[in-house]
Design a protein around this nucleic acid. Structure first.
Lengths: 231, 231
DNA sequence: GTATGATTTTAAGAATGCTTTAAGAGAATT
DNA sequence: AATTCTCTTAAAGCATTCTTAAAATCATAC
């Protein structure tokens, strides 16, 4: 669960210093050497937090901050500046900044501040927001290891989840057993028995009548197929 | 709608100065001249934010901060100190502070920072600081550490409250154990045993039959889930 | 139809993760 | 200072999941 941080400054050495210290704290950083480059990144990716120098050539930090907030982006923004003037700080907070750190600063203090802001904003994030796969009247949430069939929740084990996921990624396509094994067990000492046994577990859980599989069809000599006529 | 701020410092002049400046910005302040007095206020009223001096006679700011967080109070805390040392700052942020301002400081900068924190917390906090969380036939009042189940009051400890709160914030979503630990214990020396033990405490209190949990479901290999069919 | 090999089912042990209990340290309260 | 409550730590017992193996069933081809 890595956080993604955008660092914007004109000075390459500073970028490097901050990048290094963030990495030490398990935080992933993307660096931008100018305001324009920052905006480009902001359009292309999402960030959990932005560290933004004010005094930059071209587009300055205040302008970048304005764009961020006007674009309805709500991640915390920490302003960086050599300016100690209170007016500059007031202006920054007024534009929607969350913090204002003056240069020179201690990298570890900056990291501590970053973590404090992330702690606050990222509490409610949850795995539910992750991708879930839908098919017919089934919806699989891999992160929660939970299958919803007609809105009835069916808990799956880790292996069952991986197996169903492999099929759900390719609806109506036959997935060969060897490939299924690769995706579920990861390694290559192919053991067909494991697949057979787990297919049985899975069907017991998801099929109304495991003897008359409606969702997972067997393709003889090949593998399995998640079929469509679920309705 | 006025925000209520607790200001804690040994120096009466500083209290007065801060009080005045907060009032200018339409913020209502309550002052405490010592750590103990601060705790008294915190027990009696709720605050939207705390400004807390570190170096105080008797109980110091770090201790007060610890009590605040251990008591499941989640309002932003701004530490105030003449100490510029990075270690002191790191310690403060580590204990759950949101900001650290060094003396002497500009009153208007402090006010700007207060507003920045209130702006941030108030978006989510309107939900979070809500007097109570409801789910099915349960209602949790985090501030009072009290759970009402079918209008029967069940007192919870601080840790139990934080744990149930973490689940109640995401009904029907699996909360991984690691995330649960983060939210309840705040730091990152993940200890699974603590979670297990406290889940047991919690279930004993809230489940009719702890052996047959109806509210909190276990998701094997992952975490826990507050389930919906509470009716 | 019967033989053959592939698939399904069942079952048991090992490995892993969860629940429960209990005891002692530490705070808060009286 | 004694008592109660909360929190931490450790360990034993349980439950589920995973693996392995073997028996039962089924589909196809001869």
């Amino acid at each position: 669960m890595f956080h993604h941080i955008l660092v914007v400054d004109n000075e390459p050495e500073l970028l490097e210093l901050v990048d290094y210290n963030l990495a030490q704290a398990d935080l992933r950083a993307t660096c931008a050497i100018s305001g324009l480059e920052a905006l480009k990144h902001l359009n292309e990716q999402t960030f959990d937090l932005v560290i933004l120098d004010i005094m930059m050539d071209g587009m300055d930090g205040f302008s970048v901050l304005e764009r961020i907030r006007n674009g309805a982006m709500e991640m915390p923004v920490i302003l960086l500046s050599a300016k100690h003037e209170v007016d500059s700080k007031i202006r920054g907070f007024g534009l929607g900044a969350d913090d204002y750190v003056t240069k020179p600063f201690s990298p570890s203090e900056l990291v501590a501040r970053v973590q404090a802001h992330l702690r606050r904003t990222h509490k409610t994030a949850s795995i539910e927001q992750m991708i879930s796969y839908s098919y017919g009247n089934m919806r699989l949430n891999p992160a929660a290891q939970m299958l919803y069939k007609n809105n009835q929740a069916i808990p799956l084990s880790a292996t069952e989840t991986k197996m169903l996921l492999a099929l759900m990624k390719r609806p109506n396509q036959t997935v060969p057993k060897i490939q299924l094994f690769e995706e579920v067990w990861g390694h290559s000492n192919y053991d067909e028995n494991s697949i057979n046994v787990y297919m049985n577990f899975l069907r017991k859980k998801i099929e109304d009548d495991p003897r008359q599989p409606r969702y997972i069809q067997t393709v003889w000599g090949l593998g399995y197929l998640l079929t469509g006529e679920a309705e």
